[in-house]
Simulated assay, not measured.
Amino acid sequence: MDASVVAVSRSPTHSFSKPNADGIRLVAGMGVEGDAHAGETVKHRSRVKVDPGQPNLRQVHLIHAELFDELARKGFSVAPGEMGENITTRGLDLLALPVGARLHLGASAVVELTGLRNPCVQIDRIRKGLMAAVLDRDREGRLVLKAGVMGIVLTGGEVRPGDGIAVTLPPEPHRRLKRV
Results as ranks from 00 to 15, higher is better:
residue 170 P to R: 05
residue 174 H to Y: 14
residue 89 T to M: 03
residue 81 G to R: 04
residue 93 D to E: 14
residue 46 S to N: 09
residue 1 M to E: 11
residue 108 S to E: 11
residue 76 F to E: 03
residue 131 M to H: 09
residue 113 L to E: 06
residue 170 P to G: 02
residue 161 P to E: 09
residue 100 G to S: 12
residue 167 V to L: 12
residue 159 V to L: 09
residue 134 V to R: 02
residue 168 T to I: 00
residue 45 R to W: 08
residue 24 I to D: 00
residue 135 L to K: 12
residue 133 A to D: 06
residue 108 S to K: 09
residue 138 D to N: 15
residue 57 L to I: 09
residue 133 A to P: 01
residue 178 K to L: 14
residue 170 P to L: 01
residue 35 D to N: 01
residue 110 V to C: 01
residue 99 V to R: 15
residue 123 I to E: 08
residue 70 E to M: 05
residue 63 I to E: 01
residue 176 R to F: 11
residue 74 K to M: 08
residue 114 T to S: 15
residue 94 L to W: 05
residue 173 P to T: 10
residue 42 V to Q: 11
residue 116 L to F: 12
residue 63 I to N: 01
residue 112 E to V: 05
residue 160 R to K: 13
residue 158 E to V: 14
residue 170 P to V: 02
residue 22 D to H: 15
residue 173 P to V: 11
residue 161 P to I: 06
residue 173 P to W: 11
residue 99 V to I: 15
residue 153 V to W: 03
residue 75 G to W: 08
residue 126 I to M: 12
residue 151 G to K: 06
residue 89 T to S: 09
residue 134 V to D: 00
residue 178 K to G: 07
residue 109 A to C: 09
residue 34 G to P: 05
residue 66 E to F: 07
residue 59 Q to H: 08
residue 158 E to H: 08
residue 158 E to L: 13
residue 15 S to Q: 13
residue 104 H to W: 05
residue 174 H to T: 02
residue 145 L to F: 14
residue 161 P to R: 07
residue 126 I to C: 03
residue 133 A to N: 04
residue 39 G to E: 00
residue 149 V to S: 03
residue 110 V to F: 05
residue 90 R to K: 14
residue 47 R to E: 14
residue 106 G to N: 00
residue 16 F to L: 13
residue 13 T to Y: 04
residue 136 D to E: 14
residue 14 H to Q: 14
residue 68 F to W: 10
residue 169 L to A: 06
residue 120 C to W: 02
residue 159 V to D: 06
residue 175 R to K: 15
residue 56 N to S: 04
residue 47 R to V: 06
residue 70 E to S: 05
residue 134 V to S: 00
residue 123 I to A: 12
residue 65 A to F: 09
residue 20 N to V: 07
residue 155 T to C: 06
residue 169 L to T: 08
residue 137 R to H: 14
residue 120 C to R: 03
residue 179 R to Y: 11
residue 117 R to S: 12
residue 78 V to I: 15
